[in-house]
Amino acid sequence: MLEQAVIYTFVALVLIGGGLAAFSRQILYAIIGLGISLLGLAGLFLNLGSPFVAAMQVLIYIGGITVAIVFAMMLSIAMSIRPPNPDARKLGFAIACAVIFFGAVAHLIRGAQFQQIASPASEKAWSVGALGHALLTHYNVVFEALSLVLLLAIIGAILIARKA
C-alpha cells in the first residue's frame, strides 16, 4: 500500500514536473519542472528494479544536464528573463497535437497485448555487475561509440562556444 503510494507520488512528480516544464513561461520554472520530472522518473526506475539506472538518472541528468541548462540560461539571462509574450495560438496548436498524439498512443497501448513474463528475472540479472559485463562484452561497440560521441561533443562544444 505504501509502496503504491510512493509509486503514485513518483508518477505525480513526473507529470507535475512535466507539466511545469511544458507550460511554464519562465525558463527557470521550466528547468525546475524538468528536474522534478526527472527525479520522479528516477524513482520509477528504482521501483522498476534498477537502482543503478536511477542513480545515473539523478547524477547525470539532474546533476549534470539540468545544471548545465541552468548555467546556459544564466549566461544568456539578459534576454531570457523577460517573459516572452504568451502565444495562445501556438500553445493551442501544441496542445492539440499532444492531445491527438496522446489519444492515439493511449488507445493503442490499451489495445495491445504484450507477452508479459510471469515474474521478474533473477536478482543476479539485475545486478550492476551483469550490467557492466554486458556493456563490455555484448555492447562494447555501443560503449565505445558513446565515448567517441562524448569526446566529439566536448570538442565541438568548446569550438562552438569559443569566442571568435
Binding site: 492539440a96 497535437c97 491527438i100 498524439f101 489519444g103 492515439a104 498512443v105 488507445h107 493503442l108 489495445g111
Partner: peptide
C-alpha cells in the same frame, strides 16, 4: 504536423 500525421496513421492502424 508530422506528429499529428504519425498519430493519425498509428490510430488508423490501431
Amino acid at each position: 504536423w508530422a506528429i499529428i500525421l504519425l498519430a493519425v496513421v498509428a490510430l488508423y492502424l490501431g
